[in-house]
Design a protein around this nucleic acid. Structure first.
Length: 478
RNA sequence: GCACCCAUCGUCUAGCCCGGCCUAGGACACUGCCUUUUCACGGCGGCGACUGGGGUUCGAAUCCCCAUGGGUGUACCA
C-alpha cells in the first residue's frame, strides 16, 4: 500500500506559516515513505473562499519548494481536487448515509436551535442537538421537501465512545454523548467540513492524516463517519499548535504570519522551512541548521513534540543568517544586489569588486538587504557622531596620520588610480608605525577615523581597497 | 460549563516509551574572555529548567494518581 497524504487549505487568505508547516510535514513524510503528497482545496465556505487566494497559496507553496504530486493545478487520478467541484460526490455519499439510516433531513429553524441551545446551557446540559427530526418518517420529510421546505442533513450519532491511536499523541479516547447529531450537508447542498473531509480522504485513498492539533476534536465526528461508511480509517497524527507569545493560537494580530510577508522581507525559503520544521519536531542528530528537503528517510513521525510551540522570530533570523552565509558568493550577490536602490553607486562597480565586497561583508549579513547598510562605509562622506570617534580625532597623533595619508592619496590621484591596493594600505600602516612612531590603538583607530570617519567597522585592510579613491580623497580633505 | 490535549532553561528542544550513564545535554537570546585596534564571524566559558503534592521503587525528569496551570474544541467556519 503506498502512502498517500494531503494538505488541505482553505482559500480564505494567503498561506499561513502554520499551514506551511503542516504542508511541509506532509510532503516530507510522503518523501520519506516513498508516497504521494496531495494538495486539496477546501473551499466549501463560499462566503470567504476566493480563487485568487487559491492561486496565491499555490504560489507560496511553490516559493517554499513544497511541491505536490496531485492537485487542482496539476491534476491526478483522484480529482477533482477542489471541494466545490465535488458537490455531486458529497450528495451521493450523503444519500448513501440516509439510505442506511445513518443520516436524516432536519427541518429545525435557526431560532428553534438557538432556543434549545440556550435552554441546555441554562440547565447545565451539553449544548448538543436533541434529535427532534430524527423521528420524522421518510414519507413525511419527502413531502415537506417537495413542498419546498428547507432542510439540512444531520448525521445520526450512535451512543457509544470512540478511540483511536494517534501518531504523535498515542491513545486518544472520546466518551459517549459529547456530540449531538451534527450537520453534514447544509440547506444549500454544500457539505460541512467534517463530512467533506471524510468523503475526500476516503475517496482519495489518503492513508495518513497529518494536521494541527486544533483538529483533534474533529476526529471524533470523522471517526463516526468512517464507521458509518464502513471505510478504512487513516492513521491520524495531530501535530502541536503554533502559538504566539500570549500562548494563544497564532493569528494575524501576532504580526507576520503569512508566508508571503516573509518572502517580501527577503527571508530564504529554506531558512523559513528549517525554522518551522524545528517547531515541534527535532532532528535525529540534534541538528539546528539544515535544509528540510534533504532530510529523506531521516524524517519520521516519532520525533514530534506534543506541546505547542511559541513562534519567535529570533531564532528564525539566526537560521536565515546561517543559510545566507552558506550560499555561494555569486548567489548572495544576485539576491543582495536586488535590494540596493537602482541609483546607488554600488551598481556602477565592476563584477570583481562586487564579489570581493560580498566576501568581506557576508559574515555580517543575516538578510540580503543588510548589504545596503554595510556597503555605506565604502561610499559615505558622512561623519560619525560617536563619542569614540570624536575622541580618536582629538588625539595629538591623529593629525599627523591625516597629513601623511593625504599626501599618499594625492599621489594616487595624480597617478589616475581608482582604488588603492592592500599593499598600499600595508605600506601606509607600516609607515605610520615605523616613521611616525604611532602604534596600537592610536594607529588603527586613528587611521580608521581619518579614512572612514567612523570609530568601528570591518577590517581596514579589506575595506580600504574597496573604497573608491575619490571617496577617500573627499574624506581626508576635511 | 463539558470534552479532549499538553506541562524540562526567557524561547525552541534532547532525555521520557525500555527508571540508575542526568550534579539534566544542545540551539537562540543575554553575557565574559580569546581571536595581536574596534565591530562581525568563529572558539572557549557564564547565566538559566525537570509546575506542585502524593505514591511505586534500593533508586524517578523518566512509571501511577491527584492538584494546579495552559491550550484546543464545543457552528448550516475550516
Amino acid at each position: 500500500m503506498t502512502v498517500r497524504v494531503r494538505f488541505a487549505p482553505s482559500p480564505t487568505g494567503y498561506l499561513h506559516i502554520g499551514g506551511a508547516r503542516t504542508a511541509m510535514y506532509n510532503q516530507l513524510f510522503a518523501k520519506a515513505m516513498g508516497g504521494k503528497y496531495i494538495l486539496r482545496i477546501e473551499d466549501t465556505d463560499t462566503e470567504r473562499s476566493e480563487r485568487k487566494f487559491e492561486t496565491a497559496q499555490i504560489e507560496d507553496l511553490k516559493w517554499l519548494g513544497i511541491t505536490h504530486d496531485e492537485g487542482p493545478d496539476v491534476g491526478g487520478e483522484y480529482g477533482p481536487y477542489r471541494q466545490s467541484e465535488r458537490l455531486h460526490i458529497y450528495k451521493a455519499w450523503s444519500d448513501k448515509l440516509i439510505e442506511k439510516k445513518h443520516a436524516y433531513p432536519c427541518f429545525c429553524t435557526e431560532a428553534e436551535l438557538t432556543a434549545k441551545k440556550e435552554h441546555a446551557e441554562k440547565n447545565n446540559l451539553p449544548p448538543v442537538y436533541d434529535g427532534t427530526c430524527r423521528h420524522i418518517t421518510r414519507a413525511d420529510s419527502a413531502a415537506r421537501i417537495a413542498k419546498g421546505e428547507e432542510a439540512v442533513i444531520r448525521f445520526h450519532v450512535q451512543n457509544k465512545s470512540y478511540d483511536f491511536q494517534d501518531g504523535v499523541r498515542g491513545h486518544v479516547t472520546f466518551p459517549e454523548g459529547m456530540v449531538g447529531d451534527f450537520v453534514i450537508m447544509r440547506a444549500n447542498g454544500i457539505p460541512v467540513y467534517n463530512f467533506a473531509v471524510v468523503v475526500d480522504d476516503s475517496s482519495m485513498k489518503i492513508t495518513h492524516v497529518i494536521r494541527a492539533e486544533e483538529h483533534l476534536n474533529n476526529t471524533l465526528r470523522q471517526l463516526m463517519l468512517y464507521e458509518a461508511f464502513g471505510e478504512k480509517i487513516p492513521e491520524f497524527s495531530h501535530v502541536s499548535l503554533l502559538i504566539g507569545e500570549d500562548r494563544q493560537k497564532l493569528s494575524k494580530r501576532h504580526g507576520a504570519t503569512s508566508v508571503r510577508l516573509y518572502q517580501e522581507m527577503n527571508y530564504l525559503p529554506t531558512a523559513l522551512l528549517n525554522y518551522l520544521c524545528l517547531l515541534g519536531w527535532s532532528h535525529p542528530n540534534e541538528l539546528d541548521v539544515f535544509d528540510p528537503q534533504t532530510l529523506g528517510t531521516l524524517f519520521n513521525l516519532n520525533r514530534f513534540t506534543k506541546s505547542s510551540a511559541i513562534y519567535d522570530v529570533n531564532k528564525l533570523n539566526f537560521i536565515n543568517g546561517q543559510h545566507v552565509r552558506a550560499l555561494p558568493i555569486e548567489s548572495i550577490l544576485i539576491e543582495a544586489e536586488k535590494t540596493i536602490p537602482v541609483n546607488h553607486p554600488f551598481h556602477k562597480m565592476d563584477e570583481g569588486w562586487k564579489l570581493r565586497t560580498i566576501t568581506v561583508f557576508k559574515e555580517k549579513m543575516n538578510f540580503f538587504q543588510d548589504l545596503l547598510g554595510l556597503v555605506e562605509i565604502l561610499f559615505t562622506t558622512n561623519v560619525s557622531e560617536d563619542a569614540e570617534y570624536k575622541e580618536a580625532i582629538g588625539w595629538e597623533t591623529t593629525p599627523k596620520i591625516r597629513e601623511y595619508l593625504r599626501g599618499e592619496i594625492e599621489i594616487a590621484l595624480v597617478n589616475k588610480k581608482k582604488f588603492v591596493t592592500v599593499e598600499d594600505y600595508n605600506i601606509w600602516s607600516e609607515h605610520v608605525k615605523g616613521e611616525l612612531k604611532i602604534k596600537g590603538k592610536p594607529l588603527f583607530m586613528g587611521m580608521r577615523a581619518v579614512l572612514t570617519h567612523q570609530a568601528h567597522g570591518s577590517d581596514l585592510k579589506f575595506i580600504i581597497p574597496l573604497t573608491p579613491l575619490e571617496v577617500l580623497a573627499t574624506r581626508i580633505k576635511l
